[in-house]
């Protein structure tokens, strides 16, 4: 009854072109579960932004998604450089992305704000030099 469904992914930090595979997989699974399209869209966008951040800022990481009865939890964990100033990083337009990353259309500094916008709850744990763990929740009930 209380069994929850979990998904685990290793996110490759070396390849921009395949970035988004974990998010695409989760999207497919949530569709199969028959969840509402707007919920799936919220989860997909928030997770993709987080997945991209792990690739472009942290050299990859791990993603764990759990579907509970009343919410979906997305946990993104990396061992990258960490975020020095979370308030600054959360500001729209703030980005430390490289020119290469920008030339691909990323690095607009809107990723973290989008993650916050599309989820009901978001927590960032980060330590400079150690890594970052971001937990996001999307409610399934109003």
């Amino acid at each position: 009854m209380n069994e929850s469904l979990t998904f685990h992914f290793d996110v490759d930090g070396t390849d921009f072109t395949s970035a988004g595979q974990a998010s695409a997989n989760v999207k497919r699974s949530l569709r199969q579960l028959g969840l509402a399209p707007d919920i799936i869209r919220q989860v997909s966008i928030a997770m993709y932004e987080g997945e991209i951040n792990m690739v472009i800022h942290a050299g990859g990481g791990e993603a764990d998604v759990t579907v509970f009865e009343d919410k979906i939890e997305i946990v993104l964990k990396d061992h990258g450089p960490g975020i020095k100033d979370i308030d600054l990083a959360m500001q729209e337009g703030y980005s430390t992305a490289t020119d290469t990353v920008r030339s691909l259309g990323f690095g607009a500094g809107m990723g973290l704000p989008n993650m916050k916008r599309y989820t009901d709850e978001m927590h960032i744990e980060t330590e400079v030099g150690k890594g970052t763990t971001i937990k996001m929740y999307v409610n399934l009930t109003d």
């Binding site: 072109t17 932004e49 691909l104 990323f106 809107m110």
Partner: peptide, 25 residues
């Protein structure tokens, strides 16, 4: 890309000059 994800509505026509693989994702 993040502006598109933040602002574009579902089922819209998205006009862009960006053509790398990430637009598909």
């Amino acid at each position: 890309l993040s502006w598109v994800m933040g602002r574009a509505r579902e089922n819209c026509a998205w006009i862009t000059i960006m053509s790398n693989i990430n637009i598909v994702a």
